[in-house]
């Protein structure tokens, strides 16, 4: 008998599964083999050690406890299986709801010309009012400048006309003042008259230059104010649109949550109904 055969015989003897004849033969062999006997004692001792591990009492799950014989455990198993898929069902339902809402509201997200457009109803690429291209902004600025130039030109023309009128009236006034002295015209030399007129022209020129300078400064300030206001207008419009998009997304999220809660309630109701029917 080989070592493996001895081992198997030892185990068979240890667990008392030998026939009477086999048992007697093995006991004789063990008496003549101290090593085999020692090994038997070791294994027997090991069994005593394993016997220290006792069975534990266990409470049967609630679906058996007190309701044995009912179908409650069946529904529990089914519910347990269903619950395993519940997260996947919830995710799938949420996706369907989101896609449905997106379809109904014509929700679009497009990426074009290095810009991301998010919006409802119309494609944002058709132009939200707040979004302008660089060319459109330049065109708007040019239009404003042209309008401003036309305004300045009209003001200058008006001022020139006024000055002409005032100069004419002043000249008339001087002529009128001079008229009584015509009799004494021979008293005023031609040279004195020229000096007087030159002074008048010089003064008028200074007034005109001062007016033009003042007007130019005012125009620059006005133009800067227009540009600033236009920039603020564009910025405000953009912020307003972003707020609108954020509010829409929050509404969408709230709708999704409500739909999810409703789906959970329906599933719970179905489970309760099935459970009651089984009971």
């Amino acid at each position: 008998m080989g070592t493996e055969d001895f081992n198997k015989a030892l185990i068979t003897y240890l667990y008392d599964e030998m026939s009477t004849e086999e048992r007697q033969q093995f006991e004789i062999a063990m008496e003549n083999n101290p090593e085999l006997k020692r090994e038997f004692e070791e294994l027997k001792e090991m069994r005593q050690g394993l016997a220290q591990i006792q069975d534990k009492e266990v409470m049967e799950p609630f679906f058996l406890w007190g309701k044995q014989g009912s179908d409650s455990w069946v529904s529990m198993f089914k519910r347990r299986n269903l619950l395993m898929f519940k997260p996947f069902i919830a995710v799938a339902a949420s996706l369907v709801i989101v896609m449905l809402i997106g379809y109904l509201t014509n929700f679009t997200i497009t990426y074009k010309d290095q810009s991301l457009y998010i919006g409802f109803n119309e494609s944002s690429t058709n132009g939200s009012e707040a979004i302008y291209t660089q060319d459109q902004v330049a065109q708007l600025v040019n239009e404003e400048i042209a309008k401003n130039n036309a305004y300045i030109f009209s003001k200058l023309t008006e001022t020139e006309n006024n000055l002409d009128n005032r100069f004419a009236s002043l000249e008339n006034s001087q002529n009128t003042q001079l008229t009584p002295s015509y009799a004494d015209a021979d008293v005023v030399t031609r040279e004195e008259l020229d000096i007087f007129l030159a002074n008048v022209r010089s003064n008028n020129l200074k007034v005109l230059q001062t007016y033009l300078q003042s007007s130019s400064v005012q125009q620059q300030e006005y133009f800067q104010a227009v540009i600033t206001e236009f920039s603020d207008f564009v910025e405000n419009q953009r912020e307003e649109d972003l707020r609108l998009i954020r509010r829409s997304l929050i509404n969408l999220q709230e709708n999704q949550q409500a739909q999810k809660d409703e789906t959970d309630q329906i599933l719970a109701s179905i489970l309760t109904t099935v459970n009651n029917q089984n009971n």
Binding site: G69, W73, V74
Partner: peptide
């Protein structure tokens, strides 16, 4: 017969639990 299966589970629950526990 689900009633019978319930009893079957009750009969073997402790044994299977102790196998798994060990």
């Amino acid at each position: 017969d689900n009633h019978a299966f319930g009893k079957l589970v009750g009969l073997w629950f402790k044994r299977i639990y102790n196998v798994a526990l060990k």
